[in-house]
Design a protein around this nucleic acid. Sequence first.
DNA 1: TTAGTCTTCCCCCATTAGGGGTATATCTGA
DNA 2: TCAGATATACCCCTAATGGGGGAAGACTAA
Lengths: 226, 226
Amino acid sequence: MILVMENAPPVTIFIVEDHEITRIGLRLLLENMPGYSVIGESTDGKQAIKQVLEFKPNVVIMDVGLTSMDGISATKEIKAKAQNIKVIMFTSHDNDEDIFASFAAGADGYCLKDTPGNSLIMAINAVITGAGWLDPGIATRVLSHCSDARDKAMPSNKEPVLNFPLSDREMEVLRLVVEGLGNQEIAHKLCLSVETVKTHMRHIMEKLSVSDRTQAAVKALKAGLV
Amino acid sequence: MILVMENAPPVTIFIVEDHEITRIGLRLLLENMPGYSVIGESTDGKQAIKQVLEFKPNVVIMDVGLTSMDGISATKEIKAKAQNIKVIMFTSHDNDEDIFASFAAGADGYCLKDTPGNSLIMAINAVITGAGWLDPGIATRVLSHCSDARDKAMPSNKEPVLNFPLSDREMEVLRLVVEGLGNQEIAHKLCLSVETVKTHMRHIMEKLSVSDRTQAAVKALKAGLV
DNA sequence: TTAGTCTTCCCCCATTAGGGGTATATCTGA
DNA sequence: TCAGATATACCCCTAATGGGGGAAGACTAA
């Protein structure tokens, strides 16, 4: 299996890693790859930011647990100031919180430390083309979470929420209920009488099959009606 | 840039694509890659399922828009019956709905048709190691959606929801309010007097800085307290 | 020991919400 | 033209909620 990039400028890499043995191993692996150039290292989040912004590498290999500033925060800072610098998190932290926080911070890839060197090379090759890299250890989890989250944000087609569609006016009243307004307040806001608001409320509760405004508000929220 | 896999069995690939020219181009590209073996093709979703389950390729290159059954549904069926078969969606469909539906169906990677052949090779190499592949055209979108969705599911650190922590009992009462129970019902369920429930409600509303149960329920829901 | 928190309960009272019923005007589609 | 939906409004009445105040017992930490 051979992939050849011919006559391309070297991919410049900056290593941020506070464990010396890991750092040495990384440097050794990467410097042995033709076309790669390790242009710097740091053990410390804050220092890393400064140097990365100065040296402008193509790729940063970023540990998460660092001194003075964690790798996620450092990533956020770097991506804010230099979006074209690719950042691959390289860490033993395989918990959801760190994974998602890393991507929220703008990371382009996430590799676990038990990943083979080959995979890290592939990750680097992927991110320099703009692709995202999800390590074998986390890919399924991230992608399924992604599509799960998508499902959650959409009204379920399985349990019908509405027996009948709400009118525009009813939607308006319901929205204000969710915002925390009482009938008197809604009446005032919409220039109606309280009786009218109550009538609308009755229709809303009927259509949502609930018996009080609290249930109506909760149902509306859960169903994404408002 | 050279990656060599020595003495490995060929990566078997099955192509599902109804556009003839694209199919020919794919086959040509992949058969020219040492270590790759195209073991079959199909233009049709249903037929693809049968053949893939029969031939058991390592990787399926799957189009989305197919006849008789779309590629997403076919992917779902294949992954349900043979999880170790990797599926890369290869399509011009770059809308969120198809992307997320594909990952929900179990796809391991998603390539747009305008991607260079090189990227498709990388994608294949990635998924056979178990990694996930997010094409340059969609990586940022998917990952940011991922972390956005995560944020929505978590209490915001920006606006304090609780002035004071709710006690266990208060949480219990609040949970039942969100479920739609009134004070009398809650009292009955928890074997308390209504007066007690009202007292708890007062404390809850105080701590959440709201003036009625509806606001409390909405706030609790939005903040992920329940 | 004391102070603070949590849990339970009670009283008083005013306001709000909700169930039930009724009516009119307007608009739209069959 | 008629029926149905929507919007507005009113009446009666009861139930529920919530603001205010107070108290006692159990537990924990300083």
